[in-house]
Design a protein around this nucleic acid. Structure first.
Length: 857
RNA sequence: GCCGCGGUGGUGAAAUGGUAUACACGGGGGCCUUAAGAGCCCCUGUUCUAAAAGGACGUGGGGGUUCGAGUCCCCCCCGCGGCACCA
């Protein structure tokens, strides 16, 4: 018998078969798997459904990125592992192909998005197939497919009917380069997320989704889902709940009220002036006062500047005063742009003694500063004191603790009708319309004739007797009181799909600043937008905006499980069986946008009675980012790693395993060429060991068995916890152990292959068959481990004495009897001290577990 | 500023409170080979000693809990990510 390690070069080239050529086996198995439907569970009758979802990519025409490979592989390993554990794993794939990114690319290379999409699609699918992931290719989807976006449009209509989609003139972020509006989330430091151009502010009529209506639910839901804390925190920050009070001030010598939101009503006695935003409605009344109109004009310009955080505050006295209801003091009202109209009421009570921003403002304009919170570290001659303390100079409140007694103070104000308890969120409504071409047309029709007479869908028979949102009283109120007047003339076009027409002039033309209506490419095509009003039948105009791509991706996981083109998944039994996805894997960069929108739509679907769950992703795992030479990969840096060449040279198995070996899956890693060669060497060694070595059918002897079970246990737990890098290390350790054996039993060989199978599906499948196995390794049963072998050898025994942990020691003999264990405990240095001079009355010994000594006194 | 995550060899990184550095990369030496490549074997935290044996020191810094701390607690320092004139 010859040892594998002693195999010389000659032996290897003797037969082609003894050498590892990934190119020769990978495609072969991919075709067989497809033919044998290894990865296609029966969606109707799965016994243990496991919906293994990962974020679908946008199909960049440059092709697959190594970051995609990383993400897909990590999810695939999880799926393969679960499949081998006996689950009916459903792992679908699709493309998020609509949107600015694809459209801009088409523009750049001078092709049409519709044609480009087909090309990118083919290339992308081919590349993904070469990775050997276990996708069910009979359930793919593309968001630009008519059969897909008819349901995107259907969802839009459902939201419209629910009063959750509405039109409003809003100050929007407008990207002059992309010629479209952007959601707040898509503006980074005042720049467009996509192209980096400086974003402008514009007033435009836009379609909005009332996501703020769900702020509280979106926040509460986070507590019951299994997500990484990092992502939950990002969402909490984004929703930005703060609780406090709304206090109303009377403007002196007028009938006007000025309300403010504050989280610190306890400092009310410290308020010395008021500040309103330049956009505040009351500012109109003060325009003629000296300096006001000048300042408001100046603020408008300043609003476009990007770095707002540390510029000097500025403002102007409005000329008006308000009365502080708590002490009837007159306070001047100032206008300053450090107060934002978009948050709270657009006005604040300034408490310069205890708010640093107000403090700076007061210093600059020489406004009075009063200290109302006493604390040894408070020194308001230098800066505002924002910490806790005892109230002073606060009338009846003196001696109360701030902010601890906030609730008492709110109750006090509330009793006297001076304030109400109030909650504010940073979350804004979701701006959904885009003045672009490459997206699903918004399925709405505007009829001027109906509008003039105040008619709309909301005044129609269906609208009046609406079944929508019966679960949400607050929205019913919105619907019946305001929607019919807010949205005159608007009707959904339920004749879906509203197909996106092929037009040559799809280039964005933007919005003219004089006109409050933005113009979309479709707006140049009367043959598209001229329709008859669904209500009165007269000539009407179809909406020419398309919807935000994030709408497409907020519901796609429902579509995967649908079994026919003419139905949406969640009506069917199949959806009930599979939804929501068992686990969702994806990049943390989507923490806020995509995940929040998907949660919102699912909550709406739940309220509409479409689904019986209200969180789309009960479990979400965020993977890390692959970088190159310490920097994020990007075209501009020229450090994008294209996987094709690596697959060609080393095979998909090596690339997959190498990527997973780089570092913990939730942390990402740095891609290096030298590392991948090491992984290729490992694959070759596995090949040589298991294809050239004589594998014999013999019992595994007991020390080898211990190693085997240790490996199975370690790898199982590591894969379960997404610690892929350590799982691979353990497989390598086990390989090293086996390669030093004189002979390897069939059982050991099979176990080694099975442990490696999720990472390197092709080579393991090939060798599995060479060992004479019949079925696919990927549907074989994941090896079980025996606990007692694991704990042998180097078991650490924890010692409790009378219930308290008193020490631990290494137990070398797994077969040790209870008496021996007691004797060793006595001898062990760390335990000795506690047992000295005492006798053990009772010792409970569970191998590998805790040893509980009851010591006689 | 607030929140979250991290700091361990030359590098990527391992370690339910129990022999710190598993596994791999890189580096050094050797075998094989006409040669190159591939493959195989040995060494590889720092330091003391000519070397070995052996010892000392070592997980960003300082304290603490513990028989025992990379791990738990407190206070700092540094790096990364998110939010940010949010009242």
């Amino acid at each position: 018998m010859k040892k594998a390690s002693a195999l010389s070069a000659k032996d290897q080239v003797q037969g082609e078969d003894t050498k590892y050529f990934p190119q020769r086996i990978e495609q072969k198995w991919q075709e067989i798997w497809l033919k044998e439907k290894i990865y296609q569970p029966d969606l109707h009758s799965a016994k243990r459904p496991y919906y293994n979802l990962h974020m679908f990519p946008y199909p960049s025409a440059e092709g697959l990125h190594v970051g995609n490979v990383y993400a897909f592989t990590g999810a695939d390993i999880h799926g393969r592992f679960k499949r081998m554990q006996g689950f009916d794993v459903f792992q679908p794939f699709g493309l998020d192909g609509f949107g600015i990114h694809s459209e801009n690319y088409a523009l750049k290379i001078g092709s049409h998005p519709m044609e480009q999409a087909k090309k990118s699609e083919k290339r992308f699918y081919d590349q993904v197939k070469s990775l050997g992931s276990g996708y069910d290719w009979s359930h793919i989807l593309e968001t630009y497919d008519t059969d897909y976006y008819r349901w995107t449009q259907w969802i839009f209509i459902e939201l419209f009917k629910s009063g959750l989609a509405y039109r409003e003139s809003v100050g929007v972020n407008f990207c002059p380069s992309c010629m479209t509006v952007l959601a707040d989330e898509q503006v980074i430091d005042g720049q467009c997320e996509r192209c980096g151009a400086e974003v402008e502010k514009k007033e435009l009529k836009q379609w909005m989704f009332r996501i703020t209506e769900y702020a509280e639910q979106l926040l509460e839901g986070l507590d019951k889902i299994d997500w990484t804390e990092k992502v939950k925190t990002a969402q909490r920050n984004w929703i930005g709940k703060s609780q406090g009070a709304k206090i109303t001030f009377r403007v002196a010598d007028t009938d006007n009220d000025l309300s403010v939101f504050t989280t610190r009503p306890d400092t009310l006695f410290g308020a010395t002036f008021m500040v309103v935003s330049p956009e505040h409605p009351l500012v109109k009344e003060w325009m003629s006062n000296p300096g006001v109109s000048d300042y408001v004009a100046k603020a408008k310009i300043r609003a476009l500047e990007k770095d707002l955080s540390d510029r000097e505050k500025s403002g102007v006295f409005s000329g008006a005063y308000v009365i502080n209801p708590i002490n009837n003091q007159q306070m001047p009202v100032w206008i300053a742009d450090y107060v934002l109209m978009s948050y709270g009421t657009g006005a604040i009570m300034a408490v310069p003694g205890h708010d640093q921003r107000d403090y700076e403002f007061a210093r600059k304009y020489e406004l009075p500063i009063i200290q109302v919170i006493q604390h040894e570290s408070a020194n308001i001659t230098k800066e505002a004191y924002t910490g806790e303390g005892k109230l002073i100079n606060s009338g009846e409140w003196n001696g109360l603790l701030a902010p601890k007694d906030k609730d008492k103070i709110i109750a006090y104000l509330q009793e006297r009708g001076l304030a109400t308890e109030s909650t504010n969120y940073h979350l804004r409504d979701w701006l959904i319309s885009r003045q672009r071409y490459w997206g699903p047309p918004i399925p709405m029709i505007y009829c001027e004739h109906c509008a003039k007479e105040g008619r709309s869908w909301f005044t129609s028979k269906e609208g009046v007797s609406s079944k929508y949102l019966v679960n949400r009283e607050s929205l019913q109120a919105v619907q019946h009181q305001t929607l019919s007047t807010q949205m005159p003339g608007w009707y959904p076009d339920e004749n879906l799909p509203i197909e996106l027409p092929y037009i040559e002039d799809y280039k964005p033309i933007g919005a003219s600043s004089e006109n409050s209506e933005a113009t979309s490419p479709l707006g140049r095509h009367p043959e598209f937008y001229t329709v008859n009003c669904p209500s009165c039948g007269k000539e009407a105009k179809r909406e020419t905006d398309v919807s935000d791509t994030f709408l497409d991706s907020a519901w796609y996981f429902y579509r995967y499980t649908s079994t026919s083109d003419n139905d949406h998944a969640w009506d069917e039994g199949v959806g009930k069986l599979w939804l929501p996805p068992t686990i969702y894997t994806g990049g943390a960069e989507h923490s806020v946008l995509h995940l929040l929108y998907a949660r919102f739509l699912t909550k709406v679907s739940h309220d509409l009675g479409l689904v019986d769950f209200d969180e789309p992703f009960p479990r979400f795992f965020a993977h890390g980012l692959i970088i190159k030479d310490g920097a994020k990969m990007s075209k501009s840096k020229g450090n994008v790693v294209v996987p094709d060449e690596y697959i060609k040279k080393f095979g998909a198995d090596t690339l997959r395993t190498y990527l997973m070996f780089l570092g913990p899956f939730n942390m990402g890693g740095d891609f290096r060429d030298s590392g991948i060669e090491g992984m290729f060497r490992f694959m070759k060694r596995i090949w040589v060991l298991l294809s050239s070595q004589t594998i014999i059918s013999k019992e595994v002897d007991s020390s080898a068995k211990s190693e085997m079970h240790k490996a199975i246990k370690g790898v199982t737990e590591d894969i379960e916890g997404f610690h892929y890098n350590t799982a691979i290390a353990k497989i390598m350790t086990y390989y090293n152990f086996l390669s030093e054996q004189k002979e390897i039993s069939l059982t050991e060989a099979k176990v080694l292959l099975q442990l490696l199978a999720p990472f390197a599906p092709h080579i393991t499948e090939e060798l599995w068959h060479r060992l004479g196995e019949q079925g696919s390794i990927h549907t074989s049963v994941w090896p079980a481990f025996d606990q007692k072998f694991i704990e042998s050898g180097d078991t650490v025994i924890a010692v409790q004495i009378n219930g308290k942990l008193r020490g631990t020691f290494v137990l070398n003999d797994p077969q040790a009897s209870q008496e021996e264990v007691e004797r060793i405990a006595h001898e062990d240095f760390s335990v000795q001290k506690h047992l000295e001079g005492k006798t053990i009355k009772k010792a409970i010994y569970v191998p590998g577990k805790i040893l509980n000594f009851v010591v006689a006194v």
